[in-house]
Design a protein around this nucleic acid. Structure first.
Ligand SMILES: [Mn+2]
Ligand SMILES: [Mn+2]
Ligand SMILES: [Mn+2]
Ligand SMILES: [Mn+2]
Lengths: 223, 223
DNA sequence: CACTAATATAAGGTTGGCCCAAAAACCGGG
DNA sequence: CCCGGTTTTTGGGCCAACCTTATATTAGTG
């Protein structure tokens, strides 16, 4: 049977490859596999299939990188994902940290006509509820990671990327949503948590989680 | 790998079985296969799988009928389908005859939380854009088929069931939407088309299509 | 009651997506 | 430059859903 378009699985590989490309290119297949919760063997097989379709290039023992065609498909999936997140959060009122997973289902079942109509219905939103851009220009230029904020510095939370249910849930508990103003009080020793002063109180966050929180720096030093 | 829940394919079999159950029970597997666009052999295989899961019962050479569990799953799929149709038609403004197919994709990617939130967002609609009930009481009791409307009789179009893209497209061209008032002028000989007088003009419709159009009779005879 | 058309089963294939265990290639430290 | 540990790849397998082409069974009808 002919596969009418790409399947959920292929779309998730492309989307994930796109997400990981920001961190290291070419992306090791193991990283893909890990994030997708799949064995390295399975990931390798899928990578070969996608390579045959001209969607990505695989340099053995190096890693993969998306072709222009693959990147475009990935971008389309991401766009649908973020539009659905907006809808689920703003219109349906679902919790901030839950919409990611629901959208991850819907993103593969959304036809172009629905995508465009949804975009218009939402008023062409600029970003998903977690701050990631839709139809985005390359984002703010002076963007840094919370994990790199110097002690004493103040910043505003811009976006969470890459997203995952667990991480979002953790951040939601800490009230660390986009727009939140953050000052780094100190960093506990031995890779300990960062102590943050926010406008809703003091918060502790691990380095690992902080590495996914993107910020715009306001001041390097305390006032 | 464990299949976390039911797959699109299984859901479509159950939904289709539920649709066809209205016409003849038990439903021949060939009817299922035909409507799903699948070979009779494939349908038989799937029927066996679903029977093992206790979702339907198969009497050889007779046909299938859904168990209570299977019917419930089918009903859930149908509910999601109709809620999405409402959203796509009323909120996104997609064409009346197109929303069916888009919803047929989304219905399998919709989690319970999304379903309930969507239902609330839409204000708990009573019917899909094609007139079929959501969370429905057994529909109007005195409902008939357009194909059985006596010559000279007048009726109002209630719903189109079962739905399919082609049929809806055909009806949309004829302006035959729910609420339309119809008087049957005559029936052309040799199984010819029915000649309808509507409030937007004269329309011709085939018997086959008319058998999917449900009406509420207003008067049996011309005024 | 015998025949025919519908239905079911058997047999053999394909593709996508996943798995494990074992071999092979690579890379960095000694 | 070789050795060992970490990828990656290869070689088997598995399962769900499809397919086609027979063959067997049955139900209904003449
Ligand atoms: Mn997804
Ligand atoms: Mn998001
Ligand atoms: Mn469907
Ligand atoms: Mn409908």
């Amino acid at each position: 049977m002919k596969h009418e378009s790409f399947h959920e699985s292929a779309e998730m590989y492309l989307k994930t490859a796109s997400e990981l490309a920001g961190e290291n290119t070419p992306t090791p297949i193991a990283a893909l596999a890990g994030r997708l919760g799949v064995s390295a063997v399975s990931a390798t097989e899928m990578v070969h299939r996608l390579q045959e379709q001209g969607l990505l290039a695989h340099q053995p023992y190096r890693g993969i990188s998306l072709t222009a065609a693959g990147q475009q498909l990935a971008d389309e999936v991401v766009r649908r994902h973020r539009l659905w997140e907006c809808f689920l959060y703003e219109r349906l009122g679902l919790p901030w940290h839950e919409v990611h997973d629901h959208a991850c289902r819907l993103e593969h079942a959304t036809t172009p006509a629905v995508t465009e109509a949804l975009d218009a219905f939402l008023g062409h939103p600029a970003a998903c509820p977690h701050g990631n851009p839709i139809d985005g220009q390359a984002g703010e230029p002076a963007e840094r990671l919370l994990s790199e904020l110097p002690v004493g510095g103040t910043a505003v939370l811009v976006r969470v990327h890459p997203e995952s249910e667990g991480l979002l849930c953790y951040l939601a508990e800490l009230d660390l949503l986009p727009g939140r103003r953050i000052t780094l009080r100190e960093i506990a020793p031995y890779q300990g948590p960062m102590v943050l002063q926010t406008d809703v109180g003091v918060r502790y966050i691990g380095r690992e989680a902080a590495a996914h929180v993107h910020i715009r720096l306001l001041t390097e030093e305390p006032a």
